[in-house]
Amino acid sequence: MSLYPFTAIVDQERLVQALLVNAVNPAVGGVLVEGPSGTGKSTAVRGLAELLPEIEVVADCPFSCDPADPCSSCRERVARGEHLGSHLRRVRVVDLPLNATEDRVAGSVDIARALREGVMALEPGLLAEANRGIIYVDEINLLDDHICDVLLDAAALGVNVVEREGVSVSHPARFLLVGTMNPEEGELRPQLADRIGLRVGVDALSDPGRRAEILRRREAFTADPSGFAAGWSDEQSKLAAAIQSARDRVGAVAVAPDLYRAIARLVTGAGVASHRADVTILQCAKALAALDGHDAVEPANLLDAAGLALGHRVPVDPFEPASGLDDRLLRRILEDALDAETSEKKAAVPVRPGRTLH
């Protein structure tokens, strides 16, 4: 089955940017997409998976573990002298439905077997299926709070822990979390919003020409999915290569010492208390620099990263309309932060006494 090509998405630059940043640097922490239905959110997420490099997985491992870094269950098999077969496959996109139970998400444990066999007694859930993949939660603001906590704990730790009747079983759970929501259907609690790295607002296009282009492309794809995808294959290959190149580069992207304090000034200047915001901006800026082909973070990368990372973390007065942060305000705060760093650096330079001329 052919999926709609990621590169054929019309506009929605911020959504595309946020997804690419997470594809390059998973430490960014996922994406929250706000907007009405029918604006291409799920199409973009599923299209992104097609651009990611195939992963090598242990053939019969329920957690899709890497043969080079096997899970505890597969390590036990190796210790018993078993050979771990492997194969390549595409990254999965796993949908988490709103009515999912904790057992369906985290998995369930056969207590009697757990006492005898450990992790082999786990009946895998969605978190196991999504390991090394993408979890997509539509209307995440309507998801049960307890399930949200299970999901976010696993995302933060990279491990899913299932505890039943005093028995604890764990398995790897590393995934990209993408949640969507329509603000008109309810807000996302602040504690949950802070745990998701980036926030993007998606609006329906109002320009008739751009909407007409969406129609033409959608009609062509519906008529001949394979043919339409083939027409975008060159663009898809170029972007996939850019993602892989940025992944290889991001770990070596340098950050000037004064930019660390500039990030801190930027976050506090925006009125955000959470330290997660600082970490997210730094990791996002590194990914943006890597995507641009740069070896070091630049102020423009910080500005773009702040626009993606701070909007859902800014304190909102419940009696005032939500305004968030606009780009001009962010730019001013960042410029003030950089100016302050420059001034402090100059003030710290000792002045050498000069000779008095007679």
Rank of each mutant, 00 (worst) to 15 (best):
A223M: 13
A121T: 00
G197C: 08
D203I: 02
S226G: 15
E163N: 06
L143I: 04
A130D: 11
E117K: 01
F221D: 07
L152D: 07
D153W: 02
R216T: 12
A155G: 13
I214V: 15
N182L: 04
G118K: 00
A212T: 12
T222Q: 14
V202E: 10
L215S: 08
G179R: 09
D194K: 02
L157Y: 04
W232Y: 15
D203K: 06
V162A: 13
G179P: 12
G179I: 10
I214H: 06
E129F: 05
L151E: 15
G197K: 01
L188Y: 09
S206T: 14
S170C: 12
G158F: 11
E219F: 10
V137G: 07
I140Y: 05
H171L: 02
S206I: 04
F175K: 06
E184H: 04
Y136Q: 01
L142R: 14
A128F: 10
S226Q: 14
A112Y: 01
G201D: 14
A121E: 00
A173S: 09
R211Y: 08
L188D: 06
E185W: 04
A112R: 07
R218E: 10
R199M: 03
N160T: 11
G186L: 03
R174W: 04
C148L: 14
P225Q: 11
I134K: 06
I214T: 05
I111D: 01
E129L: 09
E213C: 09
V162Q: 06
R216P: 08
G166Y: 03
F228S: 13
S168L: 02
C148E: 15
R218I: 02
